[in-house]
Computed example of a mutant assay.
Amino acid sequence: MTEKSAEYGTLLVTQPAPGITLVTLNRPDRLNAMTNTMFDELEVVARKLSDDNDIRVVILTGAGAGFCAGYDLDDAERLPDLSALGMFDQQNRAARALAAVRAIPVPVIAAVNGAAAGGGFSLSLMADIRLGAPTAKFNAAFVKIGLSAGDLGASWLLPRLIGPAHAAEIAFTGRTVGAEEAERLGLLNAVTGPDDLLDRALAMAGQICANSPGGIKLSKRALQSNLEITSFAAALELESRGQALLTRCADMPEALAAFREKRAPHFTGA
């Protein structure tokens, strides 16, 4: 594995293969629980990745036994002491970090290796694709500590992902959703074997890297933007603009020629 690492207090950023960046939440002794330092570093890393045109896929995972246990409970004990505006600032700090992850213009794959609870659950929802080890589990823990399940984008993303009824039941009960159920609901794209989560994530990243960089970026933009568009006509307009733009990019003619050459024997009967 080729590694290109950067120094952060709560994250490990490496390059396991050309075009693929692996971001590992790196507080394993706390199940990668979130702190203000982690929020700040996630935002910085996400913005750096967004500006790097050599990056084609980002994989997000956790060190050790957990993906992310949510906001560190030692820090959470101080939240009631904040003023209303102080708490609002705290929420915005966390929200900026997660929104920056979702705004990365290339596909983000969450490799969920254990518990994704509270804010960790929300962080997993920022990814475009989620793969889970058999130990993956999800928990909207907010209601367990007297807070709302409407936190860090969960109330917007979760119903769109698994439907409003399932989202409501998970949010209101605060129960844990295991890997198999998560796959059945569509919360996980797939459950991997016990030891091949990162290998599967890297293999999927490799499949994505084999396609047109511009095509992938505009596919992500169309899929995200059209979640927020209520008009079919507006969705078609956005798609048409993307296709028109891509035909003026250098890699589209090359990709088309390669595809035609690969498919030609099937059309000629060879």
Rank of each mutant, 00 (worst) to 15 (best):
Gln91Cys: 08
Thr2Met: 10
Met34Lys: 02
Phe267Leu: 11
Gln224Phe: 01
Phe142Val: 00
Thr24Asp: 02
Ala133Ser: 15
Glu169Val: 09
Leu152Arg: 05
Arg27Ala: 13
Gly178Asn: 10
Gly119Thr: 07
Ile59Arg: 02
Asn113Asp: 07
Ser122Pro: 05
Gly150Ala: 15
Asn36Gln: 14
Ala210Gln: 12
Glu254Trp: 05
Gly62Ile: 09
Asn189Lys: 08
Cys249His: 08
Ala110Phe: 08
Gly66Tyr: 14
Ile20Cys: 14
Gly174Gln: 09
Ala111Gln: 04
Gly206His: 08
Arg93Leu: 13
Glu261Val: 00
Thr176Lys: 08
Ala203Val: 06
Ala100His: 08
Val108Ala: 04
Leu82Asn: 07
Val58Ser: 06
Gly64Pro: 07
Ala167Ser: 15
Gly120Arg: 01
Arg175Met: 11
Arg130Phe: 04
Val58His: 03
Glu169Asn: 12
Gly153Phe: 11
Gly64Val: 11
Tyr8Met: 10
Met1His: 12
Arg160Ile: 06
Asn139Tyr: 01
Ala6Trp: 04
Glu169His: 11
Ile59Phe: 05
Leu227Met: 13
Gly114Ser: 06
Arg47Pro: 03
Leu218Lys: 06
Ala167Pro: 09
Asn189Thr: 06
Gly163Thr: 09
Ala264Asn: 09
Gly150Val: 10
Ala6Gly: 12
Val44Glu: 15
Asp51Cys: 06
Ser219Tyr: 06
Ser50Ala: 15
Val108Glu: 04
His166Pro: 04
Thr35Phe: 03
Gly214Ser: 06
Asn211Glu: 09
Ile145Lys: 05
Val106Gly: 01
Ala116Leu: 08
Asp40Ser: 14
Arg30Gly: 00
Cys68Phe: 01
Lys220Ser: 03
Cys249Ser: 04
Leu198Ile: 12
Val106Trp: 05
Gly150Phe: 11
Ala250Gly: 04
Glu180Trp: 03
Glu3Arg: 12
Ala210Asp: 13
Asn113His: 07
Asp195Asn: 11
Val101Gly: 02
Gly214Leu: 01
Gln90Met: 12
Ile162Asp: 01
Ile104Gln: 02
Thr173Tyr: 01
Met126Ser: 08
Val23Arg: 00
Thr61Phe: 02
Thr2Cys: 04
Val23Cys: 01
Ser225Trp: 00
Ala94Ser: 15
Pro18Glu: 10
Ala100Asp: 09
Arg248Asn: 05
Asp128Pro: 03
Gly132Glu: 04
Thr35Val: 06
Val143Glu: 07
Leu49Arg: 07
Leu98Ile: 13
Asp54Arg: 11
Val106Cys: 05
Asn211Arg: 10
Leu245Pro: 00
Val108Thr: 13
Leu238Lys: 06
Asp74Ala: 13
Asp151Thr: 13
Glu183Ile: 02
Asp89Leu: 14
Asn26Trp: 03
Thr2Ala: 14
Ala264Tyr: 05
Ser50Gln: 09
Phe121Glu: 06
Gly70Asn: 07
Met252Tyr: 10
Arg30Ile: 10
Leu223Asn: 07
Gly9Ala: 13
Val177Gln: 05
Gly19Cys: 05
Ser124Gly: 08
Gly193Asn: 06
Gly153Asp: 13
Arg30Met: 12
